[in-house]
Amino acid sequence: MKTLFFSSRNTKEILRDKLTIIFGLGFPIVLLLLLSLMQSNIPVSLFEIDQITPGITVFGLSFITLFSAMLISKDRATSFMYRLFTSPMHSGDFIFGYTIPLIPISILQVLICYVVAFFLGLEITLNVLIAIAVTIPTAIFYIALGLLCGSVLNDKQVGGLCGALITNLSAWLSGTWFSLDLLGDTFKNIAYLLPFAHAVDAGRAALSGDYSAILPHLLWVIGYAAALLLISVVIFTRKMKS
């Protein structure tokens, strides 16, 4: 019950912040619209809707890290956390309370991206549902990253690291905007050591119906998400006790 009350509070705090709506939901939609518009005006296939939509969903989820980290770091910076830490809440109540609300918000964000993509010409198939399901480990990765950043950074640092660095890493190392082949083997190899490109490739494989190609990519994302979740829970709990 404590977790439910706390997660309900966190949902309201996130969704009532106008910047969340603008960046989390509006920005990916604007990018989809712009890239589709560009595609319609160039002779080569650069931003086909079935290729960019999985990428934009992953890029959009990077904002979840910002929301999560900002909420936690702001709570830490105020006496509100003092109040919570002197209450009978346990570390599990905090961790679930901060993470649970972001899962439906992430899925909603991905759903909205796909609905917009339908209007821009994406074919409506069952593969879309699989592609949406495939983004869940990516959402957990970004949520865990937010929990970690919010636990160790202040709100200004969160703005810089999560607002700029993580979103840019997600954009440039995911192959959303351009093929990673264009940047040479070294850059490509580095990109594929990180989860972003795998997350996009898993989504593209799901959307195209190439089911056998999903799991190898998804395992990278699941591995990163699990490791990061474990690290962030340990660090958050330690911070709470200290």
Binding site: E13, D17, T78, S79, R83
Partner: peptide
């Protein structure tokens, strides 16, 4: 116990 901390401790968007 309960505490009313030195700075105002409320959830601002609630």
């Amino acid at each position: 116990i309960n505490v009313s901390p030195q700075e105002t401790a409320v959830a601002p968007n609630l």
